[in-house]
Amino acid sequence: MPTRVVFFLLPKLHLLDLAGPAQVFSTANDLGYGYDLTYVAESAEIVTAQGVPVKAQLEWPELGCADLIVVPGWRSPAFTPTPHMSAMAKHRLRAHHAAGGSVASVCSGADALGAAGLLDGRRCTTHHDLTDELAARYPKAHMVRDVLYVVDDRVITSAGIASGIDLALHLVAAARGAEAAARVARQMVVYARRNGDDRQESAMLRHRGHLSDLAHRVQDIIDSRYADQLRLADLAAGVGVSERTLTRLFTTATGLTPLRYQQLLRLERAEHLISHGTTVEAAARAVGFEDARMLRRLRSRTIPA
């Protein structure tokens, strides 16, 4: 029997919070892994945060313990005073979980699970802009910060927007095997299936909030060639400044020297490979270290700015 996945849609939902995981399960079904998708709401049409109307059915299908309810997130970075859902909807979420089913959320969808009482005593996460608010709203929950998703007793919560894809791929892997999830990811042209404890923000994002055009251009070079041996002189020549000027401007903009930034990218990628079963030695070679000693040193401490 196929696994039924019910998306419970709330007003102002984010399109990608819905479309990302829906695409994963739809693609899995296309590949023969058996998923049946249903979209339910408390009104026949939901207007998304992006202004696109989405049709949904009002009647809930019959669900079994192998089935899944997913609540996509809605307009952030702040929660609404209360989730726009009825007492009956909260009961539906609680009853499905009590009957042995799984319930998941993307981004601010965790608020709906909290309102249904499903976060109490459980580990959970949400978008990094919402973690403090969610923790304050549901003090009995155990907030896990800066991770992609958390699984606790068939309650699965994920971070914002694109992390819904990671969550859905994890659920496909858990139910149908890692090969199935890999096939889905490849079909969707997803670069890599990330683990739940991977950080929400990659180094490429954390150090891109500045307004220095020169630093961004240098980062573009390093991002695309982080495994190569990049000489400071070549980076400086590539953007038309002296090595001293490059170092000064880059450090002012990012808080890191070019070398430290490259090391951070290498370390982050190596950690991802190791978390998926690659040996430290193989991961070191893959990201450009001559041997594993430097990688081990970097893993044992925080890279200073």
Rank of each mutant, 00 (worst) to 15 (best):
R4Y: 01
V5N: 00
L13I: 14
A22Y: 07
Q23C: 07
G34V: 06
Q57N: 06
C65K: 15
A66W: 10
G73A: 10
W74V: 11
F79K: 05
T80C: 10
M85C: 11
R92K: 15
A95Q: 15
G101Q: 08
S108N: 03
A116W: 11
T126E: 10
D146A: 08
L148Q: 10
V150P: 05
T157E: 01
A162I: 12
G164W: 01
D166E: 06
L167H: 00
A168F: 00
V172N: 01
A173Q: 05
A175Q: 12
A181T: 02
V189M: 13
V189H: 09
A192Y: 08
D198E: 15
Q200I: 14
S202L: 12
H210K: 03
H216I: 05
D223M: 11
D223L: 13
D228H: 13
L235C: 05
L235T: 02
L235S: 10
G238F: 06
V241K: 05
L249S: 13
L249N: 13
T251D: 06
A253Y: 04
L256E: 06
L256M: 14
T257H: 11
Q262W: 09
L273Q: 09
S275R: 06
T278E: 12
T278F: 01
A284F: 01
F289W: 13
R293S: 14
R296E: 15
R296W: 00
